[in-house]
Each structure stands twice: as structure tokens, then as C-alpha cells.
Design a protein around this nucleic acid. Sequence first.
DNA 1: AGATACTAAATTGTTGACAATTCATCGTCA
DNA 2: TGACGATGAATTGTCAACAATTTAGTATCT
Lengths: 235, 235
Amino acid sequence: MTRQKPKEAALTEEDICQRVRDSVLEQRLAPGTKLTEESLCGVFGVGRTTVRRAFLLLSRDNIVELQKNKGAVIASPSPDEAQQVFEARHTVEAALLARASEAADTNDIQNLRGHLAQEKDALAKADIARWIRLTGEFHLHVAKLAGNTPMYHFLEQLVFRSSLIITLYGRHGQPVQSCTGDEHTRLVDTLERRDIVAAQEILTHHLNDIEATLRFERAAGGDDLHQIFGMARAS
Amino acid sequence: MTRQKPKEAALTEEDICQRVRDSVLEQRLAPGTKLTEESLCGVFGVGRTTVRRAFLLLSRDNIVELQKNKGAVIASPSPDEAQQVFEARHTVEAALLARASEAADTNDIQNLRGHLAQEKDALAKADIARWIRLTGEFHLHVAKLAGNTPMYHFLEQLVFRSSLIITLYGRHGQPVQSCTGDEHTRLVDTLERRDIVAAQEILTHHLNDIEATLRFERAAGGDDLHQIFGMARAS
DNA sequence: AGATACTAAATTGTTGACAATTCATCGTCA
DNA sequence: TGACGATGAATTGTCAACAATTTAGTATCT
């Protein structure tokens, strides 16, 4: 798509973080993926310094895990961490939602409906990667209306981690997020009516739905390839 | 105090962040203070690389502001940001408090009472810097009991920023935080009784008290030394 | 005096070489 | 075959020199 031309302005570490985050949100970067400095230097056409800074920032947001002398790996949240992330989302997102429903004007609602249309379009075209990203971004769009920057950034982190969690523990047969019932549309409706209680109820239900699709049984650390492929162990 | 010996194990960027954060919490580092790389290299006995990484992490937490080619400055939250920080504290800390009151066992309560004793001791000895730090850390101790790491770290950020805000906008005549009425003690009491509602009420009141001592009238950006010192401008 | 332009010092940003560590491959031996 | 160990390649960590930018100081002119 957007090909990298050699003589463009150099990408900053924020740009690289953004790219990585987007890839996580689209579930094109799976937990456990090793990110070497050299490969990212090549891909983005930047020096090692920049990549290194990006790694440091991403590790701060728990998107990559940074081990001394071992490099960067896309984080693999444990079941325990997953539970905590969703608990945090419940509280923070509920508060943001309350604020958003107070603050949202006609224009904001219209933008949200535009976003919903994009979601439907992506789903219709079976562009699953884009749809996954859009459903994640929907929550952030709503949150931004609340006008609380610290909480917004915090939720951002949580949404990215949620994406990792869903990739890890979501059942792949299911709709990747349970958003198919179009809870998003109903949420926008309640926002338009400024019905805070209903909005928070939908949100709680929505998040619980997502959590309900998770299955934590699989071995937490180190995939067992024999089990995954259903192969008996060579004795 | 703790003098730096030349042949000790090198400090990591996290150590430096911690030192800076502590200084902010003790209000020994005022907003607007310029931090040069060289000076911190000298103070901590580390290379420029490490200091640089620390700056990047601190800027991520909004403790320092990092301007291209201009270096690092202790952040000066605007009145608007201050309001958002306290709003975020209200929601996050209330949720953590609810969790903490469910989870706290006898041992936890005892540790908190120990902390209260330290606070009183520092106040009695007029060790204001230590007292300020302890009152800030109290909130974090309580929050840690909730067992939600993401929210805990988020609150940590908010507490540090609160310290900057109080330094900037707090009236210096007043008790630096309004914690003199010993709302902390009452909070521990309610935790022991697992009285979530009362605990949250005290918290809300406590945070409102702190906010109430803030005065945002002063010129937001760039101290006007003429005004501060009450000097007429030389015409 | 005040404003402007220029020079020098100080500070930050970047790059590349080198050191340290880890990882992979291969060989040896029981 | 499997375990152990050593060698070499690959990757990460560190440092110092160099480049770019900002800041401070000085001189000059109106």
C-alpha cells in the first residue's frame, strides 16, 4: 500500500509505535512475536536509535516485553492480567461514557454514526482486519468525547492490551468480538438520548460479552506444538 | 545523605526515574526546572544513554516535558490538565478503594496504621518533605491492596502529577495538603469496617479538599519575576 | 539606551564502532 | 540416540566522537 520512499522525512519513534499498535489492533502481530531491531530498522528505514526508543515506549505501555540482552517480544498477557485489564476497562470506560453522554453534541453523534457505517462496510466486505481495528477504535472515539486526556490515554493502553488478550484467548470460531449484535449502534442511540444509565448498562454487557468469549485453559507459557497440531509425541 | 560511590553497580533508567519521581513527590523538584543531561549524568554517575532513556520514560508519564533540541523540563500542568487529573483520580481511586476494602485483611490494615504513624512522626518532627511524600504514598498503599496493576500504575502517574499541581497552584500558607484533619486515619477505619460507601465518601471529600486549596489565577505560563517579587518594571 | 547581527559556547541529536551477551550449529563422547 | 560442551554467528548494549541546534555573549549601528 503506502510504499516507503527512500528520501522521505524520517519516521519518528511515535510513528513506529503507532504502526506497531495498529498491527496489534488488527491482530496482525500476535503475542510472542519477536521484534528484532534490525528488521524494524529495515522495514521503517530508520536507525537503531529510533527503533530502540520505540521499544522502550511500547514496553511502557505493556505492548512489548523487553528483556535485557534478549530484545523485544509482543506481550502475552496472562489470564490474571487479562482479568485486571477488563476490570480496569469497566471502571474507566464507564466513567468516560458518563462524561461523553453529557458532552456529546449533534456533530459528535453524527461522527460516531459515520464510524458505525465504516464498521458495517468492513464487515460486509469481509475485511476482517479492518473491522477488528474499527471496533476497537469505536470505544476510543466515544471515550475521546469525554475530554479527559489522562483517562483517554489509559483506555488506549487497555484497548491495545485487550486486542492482545483476544488474540491469545479468544475462540477463533466465534465472531472475533461479540460486537455482531451491534451493541455499538445501540450505544450511540443511548448517547444521543443522553441516557447515561442505559449506556453504562450496554457497556457493561458488551464488555462482559467479550470476556465471556475468552478461554484461558490453554497452557499459559510456551505453546505446545504437539498439542496444537494434534500430533503424538515421538517416543 | 546517600552518597554515590564510584564503583557501585550502575543505576538503571528505572532507578533514575524513581529518584526524579520521589523528588517530585517531595516537592524538591519544582515544575519548570530544567534538567540537563550532563548534570544528571554527574549526579547519578551514569552515561548519557541512560539519562536519555529516563527522560523518555518520564515524559511518557507527563512528569517531564521533552522538547526537541531543547531538553527536559519538569512539567507544569495547566489548570485544565489539573482538573482532568483530579477527575481521573476520583474515578480510578474510588474503584480501587472499593476493591481494597473487599480485599484488605488484618495484616494490610496494620501496615496502613504503621504508615499513618510514620506520617504523624514526620509531621511531629516537622520533616515536611518526608511528610508530603508519605501522604502521597498513602494513597498508593491503599490502592495497591486492590490488586489491579494497570489501575495502580495509572494512579501512580496521577499522584505524581497531583504533586506537581499542588506545588504549582497550592497556597503555600495552607497545610500543603489538607490532610491535617487526619482523613487518612478515618479512611483506614472505614476500610477495616469494610464500609465501602463511607470510604468512598471520605475519599471524595478528601480529594475535593485538596482541589479546594488550589488557586489557578496566577499567570499560567512563564513566571513573571517582576510580579512575583513585586518589583516595578524599569522603564 | 535599545535593537539587530554575528560569533562562540553549551546542549542536544545521531551515527558508527566496539563490547557483551545470547543463540545456533556442530562435534565429541557415553 | 541423547547429553554435554565448544566455536562462531547474530543480536543487543554501551560508549565516544561528530553533527545540528539552541543559547549566551559581544559588538555594532541608529
